[in-house]
């Protein structure tokens, strides 16, 4: 579905992503874990062209993504959820959801709103349709952001540390929505520090450090039978498994 081939990205002298290849297949739930500054966020951002890789290629459904041109069309069915939500503060929740389908997808307004209400119900926030983002809690904002991504009728949704900016008591509601998506067969790739979520929900876990995928496997392989010393060290430091 998404196939990244030998992707590299530098920031100055720092190799944020170092020759990484990653193939996301339909129905997979991939969790990407690793220490801060390991390049996992840059990696997932590269998969949506939010960072343009210095080298390497990206294929979506077999079609090569052309970063030099406006690549948004090719990535139209790849959803993205940000750490800081990035909702549009001057638009209502409903408008946040319908803007993409109406402006970019050419969907009639009535139809877009119907879909939006349906998706808001799915994340339990249909009563907030007319609210502005500033009137919502962090967890609610992130659930709206997930609904916004769902409005793109995505084939896969990428998450960049979706719960890292949330108060602890709000993390659960967001993870629950994500778990429901996974249970319904949605393809997900999630950069996360929530090891419990990765262990329970992931079909494949990638451990990234120094811009490279150090180890990958099932949650069982990664969390219970780590091979590399770096992963063992990382897991020993992450107390809340």
């Amino acid at each position: 579905m998404i196939n990244a081939v030998h992707i590299s990205k530098h920031f100055g002298a720092v190799k944020a992503v170092d020759d990484v290849s990653l193939h996301i297949q339909k129905g997979e739930v991939i969790c990407i874990i690793g220490p801060s500054g390991s390049g996992k966020s840059t990696l997932i951002r590269c998969l949506h062209g939010l960072e343009t890789p210095d080298s390497g290629e990206l294929y979506v459904n077999g079609e090569k993504v052309d970063f030099s041109k406006d690549s948004t069309r090719q990535l139209a069915h790849v959803g993205f959820v940000f750490q800081l939500f990035n909702l549009f503060p001057h638009k209502t929740v409903l408008e946040n959801l319908t803007l993409g389908p109406i402006k970019a997808g050419g969907v009639p307004q009535a139809q877009a709103e119907e879909t939006a209400h349906k998706l808001l119900k799915r994340v339990g926030l249909d009563d907030k349709a007319q609210s502005y983002p500033a009137q919502l809690s962090g967890g609610q904002k992130q659930r709206v952001a997930i609904a916004r991504a769902l409005c793109q009728s995505p084939e896969v949704i990428l998450f960049d540390e979706p719960t890292s900016a949330l108060d602890p008591e709000m993390i659960g509601e967001v993870l629950n929505v994500m778990k429901e998506l996974a249970d319904e067969g949605m393809t997900l790739a999630v950069v996360t520090h929530e090891m419990g979520f990765a262990r329970k929900v992931a079909s494949r876990v990638l451990f990234v450090d120094g811009g490279k995928i150090i180890e990958e496997g099932t949650p069982d392989q990664i969390f219970d039978h780590p091979q590399s010393d770096r992963l063992k060290l990382f897991l020993s430091q992450v107390i809340h498994i």
């Binding site: 993205f80 800081l84 916004r148």
Partner: peptide, 13 residues
């Protein structure tokens, strides 16, 4: 982040 979010929902420049 507003530019990035707009990009992910398919809006052009």
């Amino acid at each position: 982040g507003q530019w990035e979010a707009a990009r992910t929902i398919g809006l052009n420049h």
